[in-house]
């Protein structure tokens, strides 16, 4: 279970990286398209078409952020109860909380854009929490091994 915990924590970190990459990919593609004469308005957005190929970036951001990341964070929390590592449950809960806050901020940002800025900031907090969770089990595993070696001696 420690392995599941550690892999899920690392997976959250990787997914957060994909999130920041995909959304900027989308924005950059949109900028290029507008430079070339494209016009974006609500009707075009609601057409839900690939008017520029980098729309895939927004799509990945949306699917990853609302499905994959919450799922991974849930696996992290469930596995945390079986790791018997002090602090594992706490850090997994913080990761899940950051994910919940992140989705809420992302969904509300079009109504109140300043929430978008907090969405960017909270991504770093989420990354930090996942990083700490991953390190926590590695640290405790090396500590375990040290204890075992000590008892053998």
């Amino acid at each position: 279970m420690v392995a599941v915990y550690r892999i899920s924590a690392i997976a959250v970190m990787v997914e957060v990286a994909i999130q920041s990459m995909s959304v900027v990919f989308g924005i950059a593609g949109q900028g290029k398209w507008i430079q070339e004469g494209g016009v974006l308005d609500k009707a075009v957005i609601e057409a839900r078409e690939f008017v520029f190929p980098e729309v895939i970036g927004y799509l990945i951001h949306g699917l990853n952020g609302t499905i994959l990341i919450p799922l991974t964070a849930l696996i992290l929390l469930v596995s945390s109860f079986f790791t018997k590592v002090p602090g594992a449950v706490k850090w997994a809960s913080l990761v899940l909380l950051a994910v919940a806050v992140q989705i809420t901020l992302g969904m509300s940002a079009s109504g109140l854009p300043v929430l978008g800025a907090l969405h960017g900031l909270n991504a770093l907090l989420l990354l930090g929490a996942a990083f700490y969770a991953a390190r926590l089990v590695r640290r405790s595993r090396t500590a375990d091994q040290g204890d075992r070696l000590a008892s053998r001696a």
């Binding site: 308005d41 609500k42 009707a43 075009v44 957005i45 609601e46 057409a47 839900r48």
Partner: peptide
């Protein structure tokens, strides 16, 4: 406007 969002 035959589309799914408002236009100007």
């Amino acid at each position: 406007n035959t589309d799914n969002g408002p236009m100007s």
